[in-house]
Design a protein around this nucleic acid. Structure first.
Lengths: 144, 144
DNA sequence: CATCAATAGCAATTGAGTTGCGATAACCAC
DNA sequence: GTGGTTATCGCAACTCAATTGCTATTGATG
């Protein structure tokens, strides 16, 4: 494990009042390396086999999401995905995501707007705080 | 039950090769009356108590969704919702939906477009077939 | 009205998510 | 370093919607 990243992660945990445990550091490292939203399953598969408990990993990820270190999202397939908030700062703090229903590829989207093709958006959305989830079939899967 | 609707639903079932059973007719009627996406739970609560089996209702709704009579969607809270495709024809065959995380209100949206606020959408989305899900807090809940 | 396949009812299973609790290990003070 | 406090972990159990297998029932057709 790279020393620089290691101590950066430790600092981040500490600043949120969380202990720097092996599980948390390892999970954060996987999320940092893959640099895309990952399911708990995917995080676990990036960790040494048989060492960590899935339920503990679940709690670790949920806790980190609550504290704001991670962002937790459901992209439409009923599985939580987590991404490092810090690593995504370059895009936007609350960017949307795309999930391809076919190949499962996940992609962070640049800031987008919702525009009514005809007329205006309904009143419930005027001044509402919106989160967008985009799914479907990516260009590659459509072409194939 | 209104006779006109009753026979219209029967016809719709028959044209999809499905038998007009009490469960299906009752479920479709509830969906027709409420005219908004409903969870299985909500459909069940619109039916006489203790008469129908939840698992059978689940199968009926899933089947109807497969045949194209209903549209099945996950609005972000990990619960399937169903809406009558026919009843929504006036909007658009594949309109998006909004779910308020606070009050749970569901609203069908008019046709919308996704526009990048800066630059263009990523390549995976160029020519992709997109489904949108919009959630967050509706204007009312934001104001409250 | 008899027949046969489609459908309903019931019970059991899945799978991600979630929680309770005793054992363990991080962190802080000394 | 050592020791004590308390956050975390590991394990097992539980939730809840979703899903499926199997048998009894019922709608549709001749």
């Amino acid at each position: 494990m790279k020393q620089g990243l290691q101590s950066e992660l430790r600092g981040q945990l500490k600043s949120h009042g969380l202990r720097a445990t092996g599980l948390r550091l390892a999970a954060l490292q996987v999320l940092h390396d893959r640099a895309t939203p990952l399911t708990q399953e995917q995080v676990l598969s990036g960790l040494p086999v048989g060492v960590f408990d899935p339920a503990s990993l679940w709690r670790a990820l949920a806790e980190l999401a609550e504290k704001g270190v991670l962002r937790r999202m459901d992209l439409g397939d009923r599985v939580w995905r987590y991404e490092l908030v810090d690593a995504c700062r370059s895009i936007s703090p609350d960017h949307a995501h795309f999930l391809c229903d076919d190949c499962g590829v996940v992609r962070c989207l640049p800031p987008v707007q919702l525009v009514a093709s005809q007329g205006a958006l309904p009143a419930v959305l005027q001044g509402a705080q919106l989160k967008l989830r985009v799914s479907g079939r990516c260009a590659q899967c459509v072409a194939a």
